[in-house]
Write a protein that binds this DNA or RNA. Sequence first.
DNA 1: TGGGTGATGTCATCAAGTGACATCACTGGA
DNA 2: TCCAGTGATGTCACTTGATGACATCACCCA
Lengths: 172, 172
Amino acid sequence: MRLYVERGYEQTTVAEIAAEAGLTARTFFRHFADKREVLFAGSERLLTHMVEALDAAPATGGPMRTVAAALDAAAELLGRDRSWSRQRQSLIDTNAELRERELIKMARIAAALAEELRRRGVPAADASLAAEAGIAVFRVAWERWLTGADELDLATVMKATLSRLAAVTAAE
Amino acid sequence: MRLYVERGYEQTTVAEIAAEAGLTARTFFRHFADKREVLFAGSERLLTHMVEALDAAPATGGPMRTVAAALDAAAELLGRDRSWSRQRQSLIDTNAELRERELIKMARIAAALAEELRRRGVPAADASLAAEAGIAVFRVAWERWLTGADELDLATVMKATLSRLAAVTAAE
DNA sequence: TGGGTGATGTCATCAAGTGACATCACTGGA
DNA sequence: TCCAGTGATGTCACTTGATGACATCACCCA
């Protein structure tokens, strides 16, 4: 990430990254599937963390309440270092390849959450919707947390965003 | 797309595609930014179609009703040829690069819808949420329409999915 | 002590992109 | 009619990401 920030993502070659670590490009590709993946090493951890939280949530309330538990878990994991997150995010935002990779990671989480909801008995379509809606909340809250000047807690922003979603999607 | 389906996406080289069209690889890259883009030629048209529909929607009701108009427009544009859509989608689903590209196209649409909502006076966060929620509905409805055995209209599936979203996200 | 095992290096190779320059058909005006 | 300009294409050279095959080397354990 240091090299990506210094020179820009595209201007940094895998050979340079590997050299910086005292290794070969070939070795880099044994640890990371591709040049993008190195920035998303923690995504698997986030996924399991969220799925576990979803599993641990009580069965009371609708699927959205269950998803909220997963969002809490995400906030707990990601809400610590805002300036680091900002730097990483601005890097991702300036490169289309990285944006794509980020999106597929989120999509994978949404799919995992939906699957878990279905396992808990939520009808298939409702499960997908709740998971996707949850990810939508995550995205919006994340962006607000990063760009906001105030010192709000990520979890708090998530909760507020979730309730805004309920308001916005309420049938009239 | 014919070559991608016949040999698989990864097994098809740009040189082969170009040769099939009686052209050179270099020329391919003058028409399409990369090997993926050729499958998403219509995405810009979908975006403008949806944004225009959103613009044309009456100002009555909340942002979600406005987004619903954009979803209708999408259904109108995409709901015609289900078997072709199925083939294209199964191609996309079997390749991660193509999935990523599809996701960023959807994200771009979501961003455009949100921006248009903001222009219409919807508060920033609500606009993002409504747009993202709309795309979530699109995704789920699209998948149900493609995998469903019945002969349902895409627009009908969208409407039903939208009302399920309202039910699922309703505060309890 | 010697053989497996895992991590790494080396080498060759392919395919995706891209820049620079040449070519050629077409078009609008002198 | 001809010529200059324009746009689409081809050719060539090159970089970089990515992968397979094989060699090497340190380390651990029986």
